[in-house]
Amino acid sequence: MHGKFLSLLTLLLVLSVSTSAQKKARSFNIVPLGVKGGIDESNLSAYMVGAAGSNNYLCMDAGTLHYGIEKAVSKHTFNVPAETVLRQYIKGYFISHAHLDHVSGLIINSPEDSTKSIYGLASCLETIKTHYFTWDSWANFADEGEKPALKKYSYKPMEPGKPVSVEGTGLNVQVFPLSHSNLTGAAYLVKNNDAYLLYLGDTGPDEVEKSTKLRELWQAVAPLITKGQLKAVMIEVSYPNEQPDKSLFGHLTPKWLMKEMQVLQSFTGEGKLKGFNLVITHIKPPQKNINKLKQQLKQQNTLGLNLIFPQQGKRLQF
């Protein structure tokens, strides 16, 4: 009996050490405020990204803010009022492109928000400046554009190859251009110490877009995967495979995503993507299409990727 007790105690200690090591290894917290594309205005692309153990976050896109924060509070992801999360926890916005489903939450919540910066490619910020934060369409809460400028937000144009640090977060962010039909979108590579997270805004496959932007991105991040430093990729898949290529409008299907993952594997080496975290974003309603898309992804996942379907308000940790 004494030997059995010692064995049980040893097992519990091993499990405790293992669990502690896993927790210690976590580098990022992600809180999805909106996970869909399409017509559901209460659940559009927006993801809070922070260093593990911190309440200081970046917001990757801002399609839905207030409803998503309320959802996170209701799920006890946050134990503070929603206005605290909006005003104090979010330290800056990284907008992939200026389509409404990626910026509407930012615009609508601006009167209640606190002073912070909006980051993005110059073309994206120019659209926000000239189409949204104007006195005809809303009010100019930014530091440039139509007068009077209320100066709550400051525009921070980003350039590929020039990482930026966001004060108070400990995070460093680098931008990569993407091809999204007629627009140049953006992907953001977030760095926390020696760990990385990659967030992609809307993008079409290189073959359809007649582009090499995804290939260049995969080539850039492949060494981080082989070293175990890239913890996850967040990437859109908008339509099931039945969507014709001519009607993709700069989006991915399960078939095209897996073709792009094959390109990524050509840079990482065979087998390196097995178990790798792939967070699927921007799935468009209706629900029957969402169900079909998820089934197709699972069926075509020959690389053994760890497919993750985020839920609004529920924390992810990597």
Score class of each variant (00 low, 15 high):
262 Q>P: 01
79 N>Q: 14
86 L>N: 03
222 A>F: 04
250 G>K: 01
96 S>K: 00
309 F>C: 07
102 H>E: 14
81 P>E: 14
116 K>N: 11
177 P>C: 08
236 E>W: 02
173 V>M: 08
227 K>C: 05
152 K>C: 05
181 S>N: 15
108 I>M: 11
117 S>C: 12
99 H>M: 12
112 E>R: 13
279 V>M: 05
63 G>E: 04
18 S>Y: 14
103 V>D: 04
262 Q>M: 12
108 I>K: 10
16 S>T: 09
123 S>W: 03
139 A>H: 11
151 K>N: 15
305 L>Q: 06
302 T>G: 13
316 L>R: 01
286 P>G: 05
136 D>I: 08
137 S>L: 14
189 L>A: 07
49 V>Y: 00
66 H>V: 12
288 K>V: 14
107 I>L: 15
287 Q>Y: 11
204 G>S: 07
25 A>V: 03
158 M>I: 09
50 G>V: 00
277 N>F: 10
239 Y>M: 07
226 T>L: 08
132 Y>H: 11
99 H>Q: 14
50 G>D: 02
95 I>A: 04
177 P>E: 10
258 M>A: 08
67 Y>V: 13
298 K>Y: 09
233 V>G: 00
302 T>N: 15
282 H>K: 12
168 G>F: 08
37 G>W: 01
243 Q>P: 03
286 P>I: 03
299 Q>L: 12
296 Q>I: 04
281 T>R: 00
172 N>S: 15
297 L>D: 03
178 L>W: 01
220 A>H: 07
10 T>E: 13
21 A>L: 14
201 G>A: 07
79 N>F: 05
295 Q>E: 15
263 V>F: 05
310 P>H: 06
94 F>Y: 09
244 P>I: 02
238 S>L: 10
192 N>T: 05
152 K>I: 05
52 A>W: 09
295 Q>I: 06
173 V>K: 02
4 K>R: 14
130 T>L: 08
57 Y>W: 06
218 W>Y: 13
175 V>F: 04
129 K>G: 07
193 N>F: 09
317 Q>L: 10
229 Q>G: 08
287 Q>P: 00
181 S>H: 13
73 V>R: 01
158 M>Y: 08
283 I>A: 07
98 A>N: 06
252 L>M: 13
199 Y>F: 15
51 A>P: 00
316 L>N: 04
25 A>C: 07
105 G>E: 04
28 F>M: 08
154 S>G: 10
275 G>K: 06
188 Y>R: 01
261 M>S: 03
306 N>C: 11
238 S>E: 11
118 I>T: 02
64 T>C: 10
222 A>E: 05
93 Y>T: 06
101 D>C: 09
240 P>M: 01
149 A>T: 13
59 C>W: 01
139 A>E: 14
147 K>P: 06
212 T>F: 12
60 M>W: 01
58 L>T: 01
4 K>A: 12
9 L>C: 10
195 A>T: 10
190 V>F: 03
253 T>A: 09
318 F>E: 09
20 S>D: 11
71 K>D: 13
297 L>R: 00
44 L>E: 06
75 K>N: 10
9 L>K: 07
161 G>R: 01
67 Y>L: 11
253 T>H: 07
199 Y>P: 02
253 T>Y: 07
59 C>G: 02
146 E>W: 03
104 S>D: 14
46 A>C: 11
147 K>Q: 15
28 F>D: 06
88 Q>A: 13
256 W>R: 06
48 M>T: 01
196 Y>F: 15
212 T>C: 10
185 G>Q: 05
155 Y>D: 07
267 F>S: 02
